[in-house]
C-alpha cells in the first residue's frame, strides 16, 4: 500500500471573493431593506394613526402642564407665548376640541421648538434668545401649531413605533450587537422626525397664518436664514431644530414663491418681540 500527501489547491474551502465587495452588496441591501420597511410600514401606520381621535391623543400625552412653573418670569413668558399662540390659532381653523398649550423650557443651549402629542407646543429659551422679531417667532409657532392641526405628532409616533419594532426584530434575529445598533439608530432617526411632506405642509400653512395675522409675510424667511447661519457656525452640532427639520436652504425661497402666488406682501413693518419674551 502506498501513502502520499499530494498538495491540495487553495480556495476550495474559502470563497475567493473580496470582502469589501460583499460588504458593499450587503450594506446596500440592508439600506434598501430599511428604506422599504420605513416606507411601507410607515405609510401603513400613518394611515391608521390619523384616525385616532384627538381626545385619545390628549390622554396619551397626559397633563404636561401639571408641573406648574415656580418662577414668576417663567409664568410671564409662558403667558406671553400662549397669547401669541391663541392669536395665531384664531386664524387657523382648528377643530373645536383641539386646544394648543404652549410650554416654555429654560434651556439656553437648545435652539428649538417642537409640537408633541395632545396639542402641546414646547419652546426652548435658546430659540427665544435668537428671535429677531415677533414675526419670526410667530412663524415658528404657527409651523408647530400646524403640526398639531395635521396630527403629525401621533402619526410620527405611530410610524416610529411600528418601524422601530420591525427593525428591532430584524436586528435581533441577525444576532449581532453591531447590526442591532445600526438598525436601532436608523429606526430612531426615522421615528422622531416629521417627514419632508409634513414639513412643507406646515411651512405653507404657517406662512398663510402669518399673512392673515400681520397682513404681510416679512420675517418668515428670517427664521430659516437664522437656522442656516447657526448650522454654518457649528457644523458638528447643528441646532436641534435643524436635525428634525431637513433642507432649510430651499425653504426661504419657497416662502417667497408662495407669497408671490397669493399676492402677500413680502415687506411690512416687523413687530418687535414682546417685552416678556425679550431675553438677554
Amino acid at each position: 500500500m502506498q501513502y502520499e500527501n499530494p498538495e491540495i489547491p487553495e480556495g476550495i474551502n474559502v470563497t475567493p471573493e473580496h470582502h469589501l465587495k460583499e460588504f458593499a452588496v450587503l450594506v446596500g441591501g440592508a439600506l434598501a431593506l430599511i428604506l422599504a420597511i420605513v416606507l411601507l410600514l410607515g405609510w401603513l401606520a400613518e394611515s391608521i394613526a390619523a384616525h385616532i381621535p384627538f381626545s385619545y391623543e390628549q390622554e396619551i400625552a397626559g397633563d404636561l402642564g401639571g408641573d406648574t412653573p415656580v418662577d414668576a418670569t417663567q409664568v410671564a413668558i409662558e403667558r406671553a407665548l400662549q397669547t401669541l399662540a391663541d392669536g395665531l390659532v384664531a386664524h387657523m381653523q382648528l377643530p373645536s376640541e383641539m386646544r394648543i398649550h404652549v410650554h416654555y423650557v429654560d434651556d439656553a443651549d437648545t435652539v428649538n421648538a417642537f409640537a408633541t402629542l395632545g396639542g402641546n407646543v414646547i419652546v426652548f429659551r435658546g430659540l427665544l434668545e435668537q428671535m429677531p422679531s415677533e414675526n419670526a417667532l410667530a412663524m415658528v409657532m404657527a409651523h408647530e401649531i400646524t403640526h398639531v392641526q395635521h396630527r403629525d405628532p401621533i402619526v410620527s409616533l405611530g410610524r416610529g413605533v411600528v418601524v422601530g419594532l420591525a427593525l428591532a426584530a430584524i436586528a435581533g434575529v441577525s444576532g449581532g450587537d453591531l447590526t442591532d445598533s445600526v438598525f436601532g439608530s436608523a429606526g430612531t432617526l426615522t421615528a422622531l422626525s416629521f417627514n419632508r411632506a409634513q414639513e412643507s405642509a406646515a411651512d405653507a400653512s404657517a406662512v398663510a397664518t402669518l399673512a392673515a395675522y400681520y397682513g404681510h409675510v416679512n420675517g418668515a424667511a428670517a427664521v430659516f436664514d437664522l437656522f442656516a447661519r447657526l448650522e454654518a457656525e457649528q457644523p458638528l452640532q447643528p441646532p436641534a431644530f435643524m436635525a428634525s427639520h431637513p433642507d432649510s436652504g430651499d425653504r426661504s425661497t419657497s416662502i417667497a414663491a408662495q407669497a408671490h402666488a397669493h399676492g402677500w406682501p413680502l415687506t411690512g413693518e416687523l413687530t418687535p418681540v414682546p417685552e416678556a419674551l425679550r431675553l438677554q
Binding site: 474559502v14 470563497t15 460583499e22 450587503l26 450594506v27 441591501g29 431593506l33 441577525s174 449581532g176 447590526t179
Partner: peptide, 26 residues
Amino acid sequence: DYFKRFVAGLRNIFGGRVRSYESLLD
C-alpha cells in the same frame, strides 16, 4: 474581527454563504 462580525451579521439577514467566517475556519 469587527468587520467580519458585522458582515456576518448582515449576511444573517439575507441568508446564504457566510464568506467572512470561511477563511476563519480554514
